[in-house]
């Protein structure tokens, strides 16, 4: 390297005036066939990246990212469950000596030891050997940690009922904004008997399922209204048979005109849309109620 006296610079900067050819560095440390990083190796890397990206985009397009109902601190029925990558810790804290009175042990000491050991692995395993079978203690401890993490996650996942959760707590983003026809002859019966639980737009709430786009027949709806289903008790509906028929027709097609053609009932929907926008959720889970009895039908 030419330095010191006699060196010429560009202006008053520190950039040398005479540039040397930027010779590629040789990679002689490891003998064998080497390859230029740019463009040869990077091209292969990016091809892998492209395949990965395509798969990733297909995943995002195929599976909508879930959104649950807006946070409601008073919802006592909600069973919290963290994202999958925290499940191991969540599950670990269920053990007797990791939770309860021993929470410090389970929440701080044990994870602290595990992650601390991970952080300091190069200093806990300082020998020069790199091959796994030459450093059995480090490798077996790591294996233990990995297996424990997998096991805890598996245990937690197998206990959690993701299908029911997404039905009960999830919000169907693609749900069609329903505009309930309050002029429908069955609406009065709905309002009197069902609205307090199933919501003003049939959207359901909490553990009460939504009734939007129900796949049940009118006869089934009539039967449920009278005899109940799942956790819904019998005898909720009290009214005449005619009202029952109208109610069932209304639930089957809440936006329709119903038997009698009374004016255009599209106006009041827009008035309600303020409340509906945030709550016309769960329409995918119209059959949620049946989960206990008839097995849930696939929603997607």
């Amino acid at each position: 390297m030419h330095r010191g006296k006699g060196m010429k610079f560009v202006g008053d900067s520190r950039v040398p005036a005479q540039q040397k050819a930027n010779l590629p560095k040789d990679y002689s440390e490891y003998p064998g066939r080497t390859e230029a990083f740019w463009p040869n190796f990077l091209l292969k890397e990016w091809l892998v990246g492209s395949v990965f990206l395509i798969g990733f985009l297909i995943l995002t397009a195929a599976h909508a990212s879930p959104l649950e109902q807006q946070a409601d601190p008073t919802n006592a029925a909600y069973i919290p469950l963290p994202d999958w990558y925290f499940l191991f810790l969540y599950e670990f804290l269920k053990y007797q000596y990791a939770g309860g009175d021993y929470i410090v042990l389970g929440a701080i000491v044990m994870p602290g030891l595990a992650f601390g050991a991970l952080l300091l692995a190069p200093f806990l395993d300082p020998g020069p050997e790199r091959r796994p079978h030459k450093r059995p203690i480090a490798v077996s401890l790591m294996m233990l940690g990995v297996i424990a993490t997998f096991w805890l996650t598996y245990e937690s996942v197998s206990e959690a009922d993701y299908e029911t959760r997404s039905e009960e707590y999830g919000v169907d983003i693609e749900a069609v904004e329903s505009e309930v026809n309050t002029d429908h002859p069955g609406y009065a019966a709905y309002e009197a008997n069902c609205l307090s639980c199933h919501g003003d737009a049939l959207q359901g709430q909490g553990s009460y399922p939504a009734l939007i786009d129900t796949e049940r027949s009118i006869e089934e709806i009539k039967d449920i209204a009278v005899n109940g289903v799942g956790s819904m008790p019998a005898g909720i509906f009290n009214g005449s048979d005619e009202e029952l028929q109208q109610l069932a027709e209304f639930i089957k097609d809440p936006t329709g005109e119903g038997g009698s053609a009374e004016g255009s009932g599209s106006e009041e929907g827009s008035g309600e849309s303020g409340s509906e926008e945030g709550s016309s959720e769960e329409s995918g889970s119209t059959e949620g109620e049946s989960g206990s009895e008839e097995g849930s039908e696939s929603q997607e």
């Binding site: 740019w38 463009p39 040869n40 990077l42 091209l43 990016w46 091809l47 990246g49 492209s50 990206l53 395509i54 985009l57």
Partner: peptide
């Protein structure tokens, strides 16, 4: 060959950037 690889690399890079950024 090097130029060809450079062009391909730019193309693949462009594809990745477009795939990410288009949506």
């Amino acid at each position: 060959r090097r130029q060809f690889l450079n062009y391909t690399l730019t193309g693949v890079g462009g594809f990745m950037a477009a795939g990410m950024l288009a949506p």
